[in-house]
C-alpha cells in the first residue's frame, strides 16, 4: 500500500517539477519537504509500480519520470490497461488480448474519418470555398480594373454586375435620397422618422437562394438628409 499521504505528494512533486526527474531526486524532494526517509522509500516502491499505469506519467528515459499535462493517447492507455490486467492464466490472457484488439480497432476506425465524414466534410468545405471564391474574384476584379482602366465608374459598374450575377441584389446607391423605411434601412447615428428624407450612405444587399427565399445580407445604411 502507498502511504495515503505520500502517493499524491509524489504526483504533485513530479507535476510541479516541470521537467523529468530521477527516482532519487523525486524522493529527495519529498524528504526535503519534511517526510520521513524510510516512509518515502516504502511509499516509492508501491508508487513506482503504479506509475507504469498512470495516465499522466511518462518515462522519457529508463531512469527518469515526467508529468504530462495531457493524458496518454487512447492506444497507449489501452496498452497500459492490458498490462494492468496482467494474468498468469493463458486463457484469460488470450481473452484480454482479444478484447484489447477489438477496442483498439474501434479506436483506429474512429480516429480515421469515414467516407461519409469525408463526403460531408468536402461539401461543407466547398460551400465555404464558394463564398471565398466569390470574394477573391471580386477583389481581383477591382484590382485589375483599377490597373487597366483606372475609371472608378467602370469599376463600380463591373462590381455591381458581378454581384448581381451571384444572385445578390443591390438596394440603393450611395448619395441617393429616399424616404426612410425601417424595414429596409438602418439609420447611421440618429434614427430618422419613418418616411423622412434620408441619404443612402451604403447600399444594402439581399440574396435569393435556389428555393426562392430572400435573405437580407445587409440593410441599406442611411443618414438623415
Amino acid at each position: 500500500m502507498i502511504d495515503a499521504g505520500l502517493g499524491p505528494r509524489f504526483e504533485a512533486a513530479l507535476r510541479d517539477a516541470g521537467a523529468p526527474l530521477t527516482a532519487a531526486k523525486l524522493k529527495r524532494l519529498l524528504v526535503e519537504d519534511g517526510a520521513a526517509e524510510a516512509a518515502v522509500d516504502r511509499a516509492w516502491t508501491a508508487f513506482r509500480k503504479l506509475a507504469a499505469f498512470h495516465p499522466h506519467i511518462t518515462r522519457p528515459s529508463r531512469v527518469t519520470y515526467a508529468w504530462s499535462p495531457d493524458p496518454v493517447t487512447p492506444s497507449e492507455a489501452l496498452a497500459r490497461l492490458g498490462k494492468l490486467l496482467a494474468t498468469t492464466s493463458r486463457d484469460r490472457a488470450a481473452a484480454r488480448d482479444a478484447l484489447v484488439a477489438i477496442v483498439h480497432s474501434g479506436l483506429s476506425a474512429a480516429a480515421a474519418p469515414s467516407d461519409e465524414g469525408r463526403f460531408q466534410g468536402t461539401r461543407l468545405r466547398q460551400a465555404r470555398l464558394d463564398g471565398m471564391l466569390a470574394v477573391a474574384d471580386l477583389a481581383g476584379e477591382v484590382e485589375e480594373m483599377a490597373y487597366n482602366s483606372g475609371d472608378p465608374d467602370l469599376i463600380v459598374e463591373r462590381l455591381q454586375t458581378r454581384v448581381e450575377a451571384l444572385a445578390v441584389q443591390q438596394h440603393g446607391r450611395c448619395g441617393e435620397e429616399v424616404p426612410f423605411d425601417p424595414q429596409r434601412h438602418t439609420g447611421v447615428g440618429s434614427v430618422p422618422r419613418q418616411g423622412g428624407p434620408v441619404t443612402v450612405v451604403r447600399p444594402g444587399y439581399t440574396w435569393r437562394d435556389e428555393s426562392g427565399e430572400t435573405v437580407v445580407l445587409q440593410r441599406v445604411q442611411v443618414a438623415e438628409a
Binding site: 480594373m145 487597366n148 482602366s149 459598374e157 463591373r158 454586375t161 458581378r162 450575377a165
Partner: peptide
C-alpha cells in the same frame, strides 16, 4: 455579365 445586365464594360489586360 450580360445574362444580368443590358451592357457591360470590358477593360482588357
Amino acid at each position: 455579365d450580360l445574362s444580368v445586365k443590358d451592357s457591360a464594360p470590358i477593360a482588357f489586360r
